[in-house]
Design a protein around this nucleic acid. Structure first.
Lengths: 119, 119
DNA sequence: TAAACAAATGAACAATTGTTCATATGTTTA
DNA sequence: TAAACATATGAACAATTGTTCATTTGTTTA
């Protein structure tokens, strides 16, 4: 990593170098936006709690609602967001709809987050 | 992982078993809240962009502002949030304040997120 | 010490978001 | 087929959040 720290803010030449490097390496605006949107999904404690329950088992909507002491509607709205972002998948079984984790990124991301807050 | 999926929603006995397990294993309400708060920090594209710039180098506030084409005030407000959540650290050098990444969880979390959105 | 510069902060406003309530859709069973 | 059940959805409301503008704090230097 280049060290720019010894230059004051008037030293425009070196900073232009940095700014060009940043503009070259920064991912597309679209991708950064998608990334922020993804983390926004994790940024709600109801959705985090849903994911934690799904770490244990495949669970239907009504059980999620009673496990988390929330209305069926609230849970259903949040599941829709989780599904739209491919964090969970669903499967119908008769009247019930069962939800489970979509893949293992979810686990890793939450584990890393947990490590951070537990420090 | 126990399979509860073959039971309908009326089968209250097995579900109670699941609900008890969930209540036992679910982290404290406080911890889940903190975790959601952490992800909320990642859930804004300005802050994501700041972090990406800091992947490259230690950078002062005015350079962050010009790199991201935003006002100094907006960047400063966001840096305060990043710092409060221990994602960045700062160091004064004369008039300038230099910011850098606080630890490597930040990188891991963002990398995992990137993998997910790129799928 | 006064002027200039870099960063931080508080108040205000617009935009976004999570929950509730009412209702619709889809599936089973009597 | 009608009733019952599980889930999904749309509208509305309160709460939260990001940016701007004006101002303050902290540091250097003329």
């Amino acid at each position: 990593m280049t060290d720019y720290s010894s230059f004051a803010c008037e030293e425009t030449k070196v900073h232009e170098e940095l700014l060009e490097k940043v503009k070259r390496d920064l991912p597309d605006e679209d991708k950064l936006y998608d990334l922020a949107e993804l983390f926004k999904v994790f940024g709600d404690s109801t959705r985090i709690r849903i994911l934690f329950v799904l770490f244990e088992a495949e669970v239907c909507v009504c059980d999620l609602a009673s496990a988390l002491c929330m209305t069926q509607s609230a849970i259903s709205h949040q599941l829709k967001i989780l599904k739209a972002n491919k964090l969970v998948k669903s499967r119908r079984e008769g009247k019930a709809m069962f939800y489970s984790l979509a893949d293992d990124h979810v686990r890793t991301i939450i584990e890393q987050g947990m490590e951070h807050v537990e420090e």
